[in-house]
Amino acid sequence: MIRPEDLLHPTPFGLYCPPMDAYIDPVRSVERAIVTHGHSDHARAGHLSVLATPETLAAMAIRYGEGFTRVRQPAAYGESVSVGETRLTLLPAGHVLGSAQVLVEHKGLRMICTGDYKRRPDPTCVPFEPVACHILISEATFALPVFRHPDPEVEIRRLLTSLAGFPERTHLVGAYAFGKAQRVIRLLRLAGYDEPIIVHGALEGLNELYERFDVTLGPLERVPDARLKRSEASSRPGRIVIAPPSAMRTRWADRFADPLLAFASGWMTIRQRARAAGVELALAISDHADWLELTQTVSEINPEELWITHGRDDALARWAELEGRRARPLRLIGYEEEHGE
């Protein structure tokens, strides 16, 4: 049997698969890339060919333009691609629309790279599918016992309670433009909120993408023009505005009535983090697995060996040690902690 390291191993460019001569989520331009999902630190422009789900390819085209790669190789969930004796299959990861795990098989050896993933139900994407394998390569963004994300429904309820309590303030919700923003909108709809939601311009293309893949977001409204004279009507008191986190602390936010800053992110579990970000309403809504999801997923899949890519590898490795599991941190670099959250 082939050694696992000969099927997938870490390099400065990302995880490399020699038999296919392809990199998973490469951080530099390469000839053949396999992209797990559309967040910018995983999906970069400039590779010669990109293998990904149709949703991820569409997201990349929106972010980087149609010319982001020479060759697009769409692979739907469960559809396999073979090169010689090596077979590759994308499986749902439950992180954002189109996000995938990568299953690589070669002569009976099965390795899965989870990519970014979560196990909580998410109305905007297909849920994570646990599949048996010999080597599980897991992310570890929130791999610390302090991260136990609350139910997203509870967090959305807190947002609506605050809105009812402070009707004179605009509720400005920071949410990552791809994935988190649409999930927050969808959760609001499921909680019965059917007012038009105001969205930042950076979200528009991605919102359309979700609609195209049958995720209904309900009535959305453009941000009022800053050049309009500030008035009661244009400053939108009592309304929900969704914007990428980077816009929240800029002049852009000044047009709203006494804005109350909220932030939807797994990092918001930590009070001091929320305080540092100047957030008044911390919504711990995460698109990554928390400590329990990570450890339970490893137990459930029960691989012979656990490899840990990026995030808090030390804690997950310690947990594995206590459980008597073989584990190995890969220390991949180039993936930013905060991205996608």
Binding site: L144, P145, V146, I270, R271, R312, A315
Partner: peptide
């Protein structure tokens, strides 16, 4: 909780009360 996991958590959170309250 395992002391090593506790220290890693405390080191990350930076506040004893918050660390224990979370884990």
């Amino acid at each position: 909780l395992d002391p090593v996991l506790f220290s890693l958590s405390y080191d990350y959170v930076g506040d004893l009360a918050e660390t224990v309250s979370l884990l």
